[in-house]
């Protein structure tokens, strides 16, 4: 049975390898400092006690005031799953270091997070919009997607050549 590490357990693993890498912990996740993310994950991957070798899942979440990038990392030999998070503040240009140098499997998932959230992963070898096309206005999975400068509307009116409905932009409710 896979043991899902709690936030403090994951933090203890990370702190033991790279002191000062943990920003805070929550019940399920350990928040890492963005500037030390790559270093910490590399240490966790290579350490036999942590053995976090398989970056299972990587996704972004939009919390209005900040973005979180969630990393679920699996150990095969120890059979535990750790959840790390990194926060990116600011809606204009949120930036998170890319973990592609550590986990090759991250590159597509980071591209996806960039495509749908607009989170820029610095150090990514080839960050491009993997699902949507280049030049697509806005970042669809953001909560304020419909109120974005692209002037997008629900329905099919957002494509070029189709007259846009003259309605006020959707009001964002906090």
């Amino acid at each position: 049975m896979t043991r899902e590490l709690t936030g403090s357990e994951a933090a203890a693993l990370a702190e033991a390898l790279v002191p000062g890498s943990v920003a805070r912990t929550s019940e399920t996740a350990c928040y890492l400092k963005p500037e030390m993310l790559v270093e910490t994950l590399r240490a966790l991957r290579d350490d036999p006690a942590a053995n976090l070798v398989h970056l299972t899942n990587l996704c972004g979440v939009d919390y209005w005031d900040h973005f979180e990038v969630v990393y679920h990392i699996q150990s095969f030999e120890k059979n535990h799953l750790a959840c790390f998070k990194v926060e990116a503040w600011g809606r204009e240009k949120p930036e998170v270091p890319s973990v592609t140098p550590v986990y090759h499997g991250a590159w597509m998932q980071e591209c996806e997070a960039y495509d749908l959230f607009g989170i820029r992963f610095t150090g990514h070898p080839n960050l491009y919009r993997i699902l949507l096309w280049e030049g697509y206005p806005g970042w669809p999975l953001r909560k304020d997607f419909l109120a974005m400068p692209g002037g997008l509307q629900p329905g099919l009116g957002e494509f070029a050549g189709v007259a846009r409905r003259q309605e006020p932009p959707v009001k964002v409710v906090e």
């Binding site: 299972t56 899942n57 996704c59 979440v61 939009d62 969630v70 679920h72 090759h104 499997g105 590159w107 597509m108 998932q109 996806e112």
Partner: peptide, 30 residues
């Protein structure tokens, strides 16, 4: 492969975040 669902709830009837970890997408990494 490993099909994961990552859900975030904010106590509303709809998920706040609904993420699929699609195996065939990630299997293409290599």
């Amino acid at each position: 492969g490993e099909l994961g669902y990552y859900l975030v709830s904010d106590e509303s009837p709809a998920p706040y975040r609904f993420h699929i970890r699609p195996p065939s997408f990630i299997n293409l990494s290599a």
